[in-house]
């Protein structure tokens, strides 16, 4: 029997599936079909650096989850994907994010078109104070679609895609604010789907929902990943382990470990990852 014994946390074994990218010592999987390539990304709010030299590939039509303690930079990183951080003053960014090979940080990128392709769902559902129908139709209206028949089709497709159609089809003209929290969150997903994006970013989409509504969103995510690439930020580790295909652990703005979800939760290679997911932090 020939077995090399080495302590679990040295991060030495199974080196073969660690790609050579990145200058840090983070653990990474090999991503075959990368939709995003993050290349040495650093981010500052004024003088305070929120992200440190992050390099990783995000696979197409999979669910990638970011986990990490509060303030680790996971939401900041998520907001980089559709340049939502542009809305904040005095931020600085270095490195690059490529989407289908092209930089999205380039000043020439048309941010509205980018955000059309990369939609976002937030922690707190934020439907417009309008009818259910108008919430879903809104995005397409501002992108120039006017015909009622087209809009009807978009609304139905969006609501079906978000698994909400059957619950609301008879009351499309009622206010969206009358929906339950879970329904509102699915309406926000329908709204994101209406403009036919490629990617959906989800920032703590279930943290305000009860377990049943959470289960519905999680089920929906499995359906959505057949057609979309999903990136989710969550501080609920069980949720990350349930829904995602890949999980990245961030700590103090650094990528510590990025792996197939089952690998990360069964045999993480870094001590910090192990300590975080087993609740030994602090």
């Amino acid at each position: 029997m020939e077995i090399k014994i080495s302590p679990v946390n040295e991060g030495e074994w199974m080196e073969s599936d660690v790609s050579a990218m990145g200058t840090d010592d983070a653990v990474r999987p090999e991503i075959k079909d990368a939709l995003f390539q993050i290349d040495s990304l650093s981010f500052w709010y004024r003088e305070s650096q929120a992200l440190h030299d992050i390099s990783m590939d995000i696979p197409s039509r999979q669910i990638t989850a970011y986990i990490g303690p509060s303030g680790c930079g996971k939401s900041t990183l998520l907001r980089c994907f559709n340049r939502l951080n542009d809305l904040i003053d005095e931020v600085r960014i270095e490195g690059d994010i490529r989407f289908e090979g092209a930089s999205i940080l380039d000043p020439s990128v048309e941010v509205n078109s980018l955000r059309k392709r990369i939609g976002m769902v937030f922690q707190k559902s934020n439907p417009f104070p309008k009818s259910i129908y108008e919430n879903v139709a809104y995005g397409c209206r501002i992108h120039g679609i006017r015909r009622k028949r087209d809009l009807d089709e978009i609304v139905e497709r969006g609501l079906r895609g978000a698994a909400l159609w059957d619950e609301v089809k008879d009351r499309l003209d009622e206010s969206a604010l009358g929906l339950s929290g879970g329904q509102q969150q699915r309406l926000c997903i329908a709204r994101a789907l209406s403009v036919e994006p490629d990617v959906i970013l989800l920032d703590e989409p279930c943290s305000a929902l009860d377990p049943v509504a959470t289960a519905k969103i999680e089920e929906l995510m499995q359906e959505l990943k057949k057609r979309y690439t999903l990136i989710i930020v969550t501080h609920n580790m069980q949720q990350a382990s349930r829904v995602s295909d890949f999980t990245a652990f961030l700590y103090h703005g650094r990528l510590i470990e990025y792996a197939e979800t089952k690998t990360l939760f069964i045999r993480p290679r870094k001590k910090q990852t192990e300590d975080y997911i087993t609740g030994r932090f602090g």
Partner: peptide, 9 residues
């Protein structure tokens, strides 16, 4: 607890 990592193992 839904243990993970070394606890699960």
């Amino acid at each position: 607890y839904q243990p993970a990592a070394v606890d699960l193992r």
